[in-house]
């Protein structure tokens, strides 16, 4: 019985390790996602700055199109839903979703600064220039 129990637990560890490799959602900045795009349909996260002048609302009133850039590359993003209230052009955003084969990123969820003290973790490491920009633009 002990042997079976240990085998189940070892199996759990192996299964977890294998599933984590396949199911974990990786974080990309635009230049990375353009250079080596993830396979279409895989859940990933994309973080960068919402480019000024790129935000458009579609006719249905709930679909947003915008461009996320990091100074080196630009990725068009489509999002259907209610955007976080501090989501504005020129500020940082993390989009959760999938890359499509045509190079558009389809987001299921957007994370923006949701108060003055909170910055999505991934945006903490953006270079100084961008960080200053985020701070100055969103205050």
């Amino acid at each position: 019985m002990l042997v079976i129990a240990l085998a189940v637990l070892a199996g759990a560890a192996l299964l977890a390790a294998w599933a984590l490799r396949n199911q974990a959602s990786y974080f990309y900045v635009p230049s990375e996602i353009v250079a080596s795009p993830p396979e279409p349909g895989r859940a990933v996260r994309l973080g960068g700055m919402v480019e000024k002048g790129s935000l458009r609302t579609q006719a249905d009133g709930v679909t947003l199109m915008f461009v996320v850039g990091d100074g080196k590359a630009r990725v068009p993003v489509r999002f259907s839903g209610i955007a976080p209230s501090l989501f504005v052009e020129g500020s940082g955003v993390v989009a959760e979703g999938k890359m499509r084969a045509d190079g558009t990123f389809v987001a299921d969820n957007l994370l923006a600064k949701h108060d003055e003290n909170y910055v999505p973790r991934e945006l903490e490491d953006m270079d100084q220039h961008q960080a200053r920009q985020v701070v100055s633009e969103t205050r």
Partner: peptide, 24 residues
């Protein structure tokens, strides 16, 4: 419990190797 613990700690582990992931 092991599965949940692994999944919760995995992002911290990969971050040590400079890869950012989230597990959902």
């Amino acid at each position: 419990l092991g599965v949940v613990l692994f999944g919760t700690l995995y992002p911290l582990v990969t971050e040590a190797f400079d890869t950012r992931v989230s597990v959902g």
